[in-house]
């Protein structure tokens, strides 16, 4: 498979009043052509900053201190802002989290959707508006020809998110980055938006990076999942790997705090106790250690490397070291392992 995007050893720092925040501390991942990669993790783990770095849409106090962002082998971090303008909205586009505030309140939505077309292609206004109408119909805005002249406040939240999606796909991007596109919406609308993204992916063949802190929506959309904690990835693999053969205690915690249909015992949600570390002074060892019931001496001292679990499944936990003692994961996770075996996988 073709890697169309590869992020290598990304480090992002923020200059703040209290000092330097090391928000991203060495992130590696890649995106294959045509697939959907989900990035999950608690609030503040660095998901948005990671993907914003790809397009260099960061706050002015941010510095990408190290790393490469290879797009078809070309390092985007070496490009000027002008060169990046040619990629943004054209090759790589982004869907933001809050549909209520993402649209310009004083511009008709037709103009807003047509904008990327007019910026990146030598098309007439008429053709651009024609394509805009098509795309609005595609994302499910009824009567698009007339509604193109309306302003954002005349649409519901779900409709506005569809418009935001229309803006992102209007110029057939190769990569679509969706940063929590459904968080602000109610559950039924969430499901509709996810279905829409899947449908669009089939129609226009984009690769998607889908960010969420809700593992529940991941299964429905992703091919692969990367789990993020305190500015690093801690585990990544296929959806089945992460859901039914998770290895990192943080992933266990996330899965445990997720309501599912088959947790038919009273859906008692266990959120992970404790809080993420302060990234002004990142810990020397494993950042998750203080919250990890399975932490060992070495977790305090040294950051775990990635251990290979299976062909495309890796986890950064000392528990996978050959010399580590065998531990028994929580009961709910064991149940998942059983299911994995039924699926034909080879759980640990």
């Amino acid at each position: 498979m073709d890697k169309i995007l590869e992020v290598k050893d990304l480090h992002v720092d923020f200059d703040t009043y209290n000092g330097v925040v090391h928000a991203i501390r060495g992130v590696n991942f890649h995106l294959n052509a045509g697939e959907t990669l989900a990035i999950v993790g608690e609030s503040g783990s660095g998901k948005s900053i990671t993907v914003r770095s790809v397009l260099q849409l960061l706050a002015s106090n941010a510095t990408i201190s190290k790393g490469e962002v290879l797009y078809h082998g070309d390092d985007l971090l070496q490009k000027s802002d002008k060169e990046m303008d040619k990629i943004r909205g054209n090759k790589i586009s982004m869907i933001f989290q809050d549909p209520m505030t993402s649209l310009d309140p004083t511009m008709t939505i037709g103009k807003q959707v047509a904008e990327p077309l007019l910026i990146h292609n030598n098309v007439s206004k008429k053709d651009a508006l024609k394509r805009t109408e098509e795309v609005l119909r595609l994302v499910g805005i009824p009567n698009p020809a007339a509604r193109m002249n309306d302003y954002p406040h005349q649409f519901s939240g779900g409709q506005r998110q569809r418009i935001v999606i229309a803006i992102a796909i209007v110029d057939y991007p190769e990569i679509l980055i969706a940063d929590e596109p459904t968080t602000a919406l109610d559950v039924t609308v969430q499901a509709q938006i996810i279905d829409l993204l899947k449908e669009l992916q089939q129609k226009i063949g984009t690769s998607i990076i889908f960010i969420t802190h809700d593992l529940g929506v991941v299964a429905g959309i992703a091919d692969r999942v990367a789990v993020m904690y305190a500015g690093r990835f801690v585990e990544y693999g296929s959806v089945d790997d992460i859901f039914y053969n998770p290895q990192h205690p943080y992933t266990w915690g996330l899965l445990d705090s997720m309501p599912t249909l088959d947790t038919n015992e009273e859906a008692r949600l266990n959120s992970i106790p404790g809080t993420p570390p302060n990234l002004l002074n990142p810990p020397k060892g494993d950042a998750f250690a203080p919250r990890n019931a399975y932490a060992m001496q070495i977790d305090e001292e040294e950051q775990p490397p990635f251990f290979k679990v299976s062909k495309n499944h890796f986890a950064a936990t000392w528990l996978l070291h050959p010399d580590a003692p065998k531990v028994t994961p929580p009961a709910a996770i064991l149940k998942r392992y059983e299911k994995f075996q039924k699926l034909g996988g080879n759980a640990k």
Binding site: L57, D85, G89, M94, F96, S102, D104, V164
Partner: peptide, 20 residues
């Protein structure tokens, strides 16, 4: 947010200011 979105569309900084 909408200025960020405008920038993410590929607008130059000048266009972001003048158009949005």
């Amino acid at each position: 947010d909408y200025i960020e979105l405008a920038k993410s569309k590929g607008n130059s900084n000048w266009k972001v200011v003048t158009k949005h």
